[in-house]
Design a protein around this nucleic acid. Sequence first.
DNA 1: CTTTGGATCGTCT
DNA 2: GACGATCCAAAGG
Length: 214
Amino acid sequence: VGAAARVARRVPLRRRALAGEVLDVAPSLLNKLVVRGERVGRIVEVEAYRGESDPASHAFGGPTRRNATMFGPAGGLYVYFTYGMHWCANVVCGPVGVAQAVLLRALAPVAGIEAMRRARSAVARDVDLANGPAKLCQAFSITGTDDGTDLVAGGPRADQAGRLYLAEDGVPPPPVPGQGPRVGISRAADWPWRFWVPEDPHVSGARRWRRSGR
DNA sequence: CTTTGGATCGTCT
DNA sequence: GACGATCCAAAGG
């Protein structure tokens, strides 16, 4: 079978793929795709947040108005607002009632780059379009109105409507992902629950962390 | 190249 | 009333 015959088909992720334990789901999302209309990005960096047992999670301390989506079914999109100006996006996983979620930290632009540039007009280089949790939300126009979106309801209808969903195109997660402490938190700051695609230039702060040896 | 500080407001105490 | 699961411009070497 020639390469042309194996051209990657994009297939929406199934809820089953997200229903497991967050520490398994998080690295399994590496190299999966985020799709919104013409815009497509490959997930290259994530962080696991383990709900009520995780001091760094927004769900630590139980349900509130803000974190309600995290207690819902796997496949939900949990979007939150921070620093008075930025949105960040998470993929909910685990069973209903268990508030586990995977923070999307960086994407490699795959398609719709012009649309991403329009959403981030000040950016000079493509590598900077989605190499951070708030940057990728800008690039994909993700805001609070997207909170609660079902990310496994993908397909032509979703494409038509410009609805967000997750997909795969046959690229497997890295056999040995990069792993290290989560970024920007103060509690449980040493727990190594950040995962990334090794050597990928779109990982957030890639330059800084490469120089410091991680 | 690296470091510093400002922006800005919803959320929970 | 304090504090962010951040980003960027500006200033300094």
